[in-house]
């Protein structure tokens, strides 16, 4: 039986959480925005160091604060991806507080901080914006172009499995 790991994507509504999962699992993308209510779960089996890892991907309804999310959704999570939209500053204004919340309530669970929609911005310019606000980001990706999506999930797998 393969190892199963629960990954939850968190962040504001409209940042592209569902699109990232669909791109990763089904390799598809749609420009039309479809609001997620509640939770939608998809699964993908990935190879990792000669083994098969089952990733159970929880695409939860976007909220302005994580503590507004239903606590049961986050139970048993092995890794988080915090997604922000660089075109809407409200999606990262409280990033530091949100990360503190995760650290406090889910200690030692790895979190990847991800800027989605990188196809819409000048990445180097946006890095300056983040630097001014003293915000640290792990990766830039685009669910639309598929750029870096697979890599981000595999990086999280690596972190979850402690390699």
């Amino acid at each position: 039986m393969s190892v199963s790991k629960k990954i939850v994507l968190v962040g504001h509504y409209g940042v592209g959480k569902s699109s990232l999962i669909r791109r990763f699992v089904q390799n598809i993308f749609s420009d039309s925005y479809q609001v997620t209510i509640g939770v939608h779960i998809l699964k993908k089996i990935v190879p990792y160091k000669g083994e098969e890892i089952t990733l159970v991907l929880w695409d939860i309804e976007g909220k302005e604060n994580i503590n507004q999310s239903r606590a049961s959704y986050l139970l048993g999570t092995s890794g988080f991806i915090f997604v922000i939209d660089p075109t809407r500053d409200s999606t990262y204004q409280n990033l530091k507080e949100e990360l503190i919340f995760l650290e406090k309530n889910y200690p030692k669970i790895p979190v990847i901080k991800l800027v989605n929609k990188s196809d819409l911005i000048d990445v180097e310019e946006f890095k300056k914006v983040l630097a001014i606000q003293n915000l640290e980001i792990d990766f830039f990706s685009s669910a639309k172009t598929g750029d870096n999506v697979e890599h981000v999930f595999m990086q999280l797998v690596s972190k979850m499995l402690g390699a």
């Binding site: 509640g38 939770v39 309804e61 239903r70 049961s72 139970l75 048993g76």
Partner: peptide, 19 residues
């Protein structure tokens, strides 16, 4: 998939809305 891990602990009532 996650239920199997949660049933180990006894006397819990965990609601999941809007799945």
């Amino acid at each position: 998939e996650t239920i199997a891990a949660l049933v180990i602990e006894e006397n819990q009532h965990i609601p999941f809305n809007c799945v």
